[in-house]
Design a protein around this nucleic acid. Structure first.
Lengths: 144, 144
DNA sequence: TATTGTTATACTCTATAACTATA
DNA sequence: TATAGTTATAGAGTATAACAATA
């Protein structure tokens, strides 16, 4: 038998979901103006901090997608000229996904917009004490 | 020109997304054990606090889905015997979606599990001061 | 004319499983 | 044998647009 949620707890949960939904919706909509889905943005973002590229399996694991799903998305991004499949010197089986110059240019254009949105919707609405508490609290949720 | 996010701000944002993702993933997985998707759960949850049912357009608006999308999901739930389409006395065009006894029974079985999960992953990891701050902070994010 | 809801259609995405090639 | 990645295929879900019926 689980203790039901009291009013405060219910409100906290509701507001967490609502805030998450709102952020996600806003991000999705903004990304669409750049012609990207969230998964595609995640891929590009990962690649942007990995100059030598990332292996497909490793990337699939990081994004919690199947290899086949990633293969599909990589094909989409490749078709747009944003990523390239390069071979791995150490393992003939492996493919490393890398950003093309166009991909780098795009992510360089999208990221500032993304940051501005996050700032507008989230960061700038909280003072630094709130931010610190939220960060510490949600870190406990994010961890296993 | 937008001010870039500093380390603390970036961490706060990252952890918010991570916490949201983690919760959502856990919820999705749990609902699947009950044979429900999140959209379907949302529909049943809405109906559970509306004994007289909810109109299709109103419900579609509340869930941020198109009428056609809701029509599809209503069909799925109807096929499982969880909801019924009833006519509206006041408007011949309108359909009110209501819970069947089976739907009521199911949501009565799912909700306690859901609450237990939310408690385990979120509520019980925070003390009451943290919970209050998180609630107040995220309320600012959730609002327009 | 506007609104309620359904349906036909097409499209995107995801996963499973079978497959090739290399380790 | 195990792992990297692709592909064929099928399924779930979503949206757009056209539609019928009522307001």
């Amino acid at each position: 038998m689980t203790t039901p949620l009291n009013e405060d707890e219910l409100a906290a949960y509701f507001v967490l979901r609502a805030a998450g939904d709102r952020l996600q919706r806003a991000v999705t909509q903004q990304l669409r103006t750049h012609g990207l889905t969230e998964v595609q943005f995640s891929i590009l973002a990962q690649l942007s901090s990995a100059p030598d590229g990332v292996g497909m399996s490793e990337l699939a694991g990081a994004l919690v997608v199947t290899k086949s799903g990633l293969s599909y998305q990589a094909g989409q991004l490749e078709g747009k000229g944003l990523v390239a499949r390069t071979s791995d010197a150490a393992d003939e089986r492996a493919i490393r996904l890398t950003l093309t110059p166009a991909g780098l240019e795009l992510i360089g254009r999208v990221l500032p917009d993304h940051v501005a949105l996050v700032r507008d919707l989230f960061i700038d609405r909280l003072d630094s004490a709130e931010l610190a508490t939220v960060r510490a609290s949600l870190a406990k949720v994010a961890r296993g």
